[in-house]
Design a protein around this nucleic acid. Structure first.
Length: 460
RNA sequence: UCCCCAGUAGCUCAGUCGGUAGAGCAGGAGACUGUUAAUCUCUUUGUCCGCGGUUCGAGUCCGUGCUGGGGAGCCA
């Protein structure tokens, strides 16, 4: 007999005479002569209630079924005689696959997120984390679906990179050298003897590679792991996270901003529709304002606000900020919060930042003071997307690199794209985990990553 | 890296003025019931984070280290 999943049983249209279901025991309630066993197999949030009585083959083992035990049930799907569920399984045979002993760490009660992080290998067995990781999966699929329907190519950019100054933060160095016996030349590390013959790092962004493919395939996106060796200790940062980076030929900044908005709205709507049961758990137990927040994102136009106007609003707010704001300073958390949570109360796209605080590849505007950059800020999370129109003019790009004291030689291939058939193009990077935090209301990035990596933490 | 807070039973926590520790849940035993994180009775469990100090006496006060959390910076 073929195994049926709990998800399908609970959404059955009619009774089923014989079925096979396997899963893990969430809880067991004994009555005189029979027991209720709740089974979860991960296919959905809800448990399946199984009723077994003393005549059921295997019943002698039922009383030993503890939370976490794995079982096989053969039985019949019938309308439940009790309240609280439509269907239940009347067991005909129960086989115990394994019994979880009394020291099984997950109990039938609420555990703190901090404790569950210490048992990250077991926490997906809880309602909350099961829901979070089902949503993570669905959100990944939704991203691919969105781009596929728009005719984007999915691009795999390298994880290992020889570029060491992409300006996106501290990088993890990668080497095949014996660290206990590093080859030296005149007292310096001799990278010529390393695997690639030159220093190598883990990628901090696939953008520069993606630009090359956008200028060939038109519209591309990457979706993969990204690494930052920043010593960041916050609930919004991880050393290893996933980033979505679309890159589009012939897109100008406004096209870029419009895509970012449509993208986020599409994904939020998708999750509300496809994961309603899991989302309901989060809005009930994790963040009571979640549905309001998500509706707000779907229904309202994002504010598109030039950086200079953002500065004006902040200056005229009458609020005293810890960090003084004026043209040329970057927006701090407190400023982003003010704009998204107090002033506009919805997502805000700030664009045209001073070129002094943005990287070399962003397109310089006609005022020669600002660049065509844009950051999407959302209430509660802050920056979720950072992007720009890229500088497609070779002379502008080279003089920017010179201004910043960058060595041009390693970028020969990047500059080549501006020599041969250069064209306006734009793109952005979206922090996948931050989007997950947004749609679940989970406030710590460590709780939306299966096995999170943060400073001093690489267990599991 | 900086600032703040916390660390007590397997888990979540309480512990007054400094006098050698307690509850709920979990575990164990029993009762009862188409039960819903079932209920009721009985019951086991402690390196009070480590080290040092003050004191007749420290879970409690002081110093220090470690771990965790929140905020800031860096950023997605």
């Amino acid at each position: 007999m073929k195994r049926t999943k709990v998800l399908h049983l609970l959404s059955a249209e009619s009774p089923i005479e014989e079925l096979l279901v396997k899963g893990w025991v969430r809880t067991r309630r004994d009555a005189k002569g029979f027991s209720f066993i709740e089974i979860n197999d991960g296919s959905c949030l809800a448990n399946l209630q199984v009723v077994a009585d003393t005549t059921t083959p295997g019943y002698d083992m039922v009383t030993k079924l503890s939370t976490g035990s794995a079982v096989t049930i053969i039985g019949e799907l019938v309308n439940s005689a009790g309240k609280g569920q439509k269907w239940e399984v009347q067991a005909r045979k129960i086989e115990v696959i394994s019994v979880a002993p009394e020291n099984y760490p997950l109990q039938k009660k609420r555990h703190s997120d901090e404790f569950l992080r210490t048992i990250a290998h077991l926490r997906p067995r809880t309602n909350k984390y099961g829901a979070a990781f089902r949503i993570r999966s669905e959100l990944s699929w939704a991203i691919h679906k969105f781009f596929r329907e728009k005719g984007f190519c999915y691009l795999h950019t390298p994880i290992l990179t020889g570029s060491d100054c992409e300006g996106a933060g501290e990088m993890f160095q990668v080497t095949a050298m014996d660290l206990k016996n590093i080859p030296k030349n005149n007292g310096r590390v001799d990278f010529e003897q390393d695997f690639f013959g030159t220093p190598a790092n883990l990628t901090v962004s696939g953008q520069l590679s993606a630009e090359m493919f956008a200028l060939a395939l038109g519209e591309v996106y990457t979706f993969g792991p990204t690494f930052r060796a920043e010593n960041s200790n916050t609930r919004r940062h991880a050393a290893e996270f996933w980033m979505v980076e679309p890159e589009m030929a012939f897109y100008e900044l406004s096209d870029n901003m419009d895509l970012a908005e449509v993208f986020i709205k599409h994904l939020v709507l998708h999750i509300i529709e496809k994961c309603s049961e899991d989302v309901a758990l989060f809005s009930k137990f994790v963040d009571k304002t979640l549905m309001t927040t998500l509706e707000n994102i779907i229904q309202n136009n994002f504010v598109q606000l030039p950086y200079t106007e953002a500065i004006d609003i902040l200056l005229k707010s009458g609020k005293t900020f810890e960090y003084k704001i004026n043209f040329g300073t970057d927006l701090q958390s407190e400023h982003e919060k003010f704009l998204t949570e107090i002033h506009f109360k919805k997502p805000v796209i700030v664009y045209n930042y001073p070129k002094t605080i943005k990287p070399f590849y962003m397109r310089v505007n006609d005022d020669n003071k600002t660049v065509a950059a844009m950051d999407v800020l959302v209430p509660g999370i802050g920056e979720i997307i950072g992007g720009s129109q890229r500088e497609e003019r070779l002379d502008f790009l080279e003089s920017r690199m010179e201004e910043l004291g960058m060595e041009k030689a390693p970028y020969w291939w990047y500059l080549d794209s501006r020599r041969f058939g250069s064209a306006p193009h734009s793109g952005f990077g979206l922090g996948f985990e931050r989007l997950l935090m947004l749609v679940t209301g989970i406030s710590n990035i460590r709780d939306v990553i299966p096995f999170p990596r943060t400073p001093n933490s690489i267990e599991f």
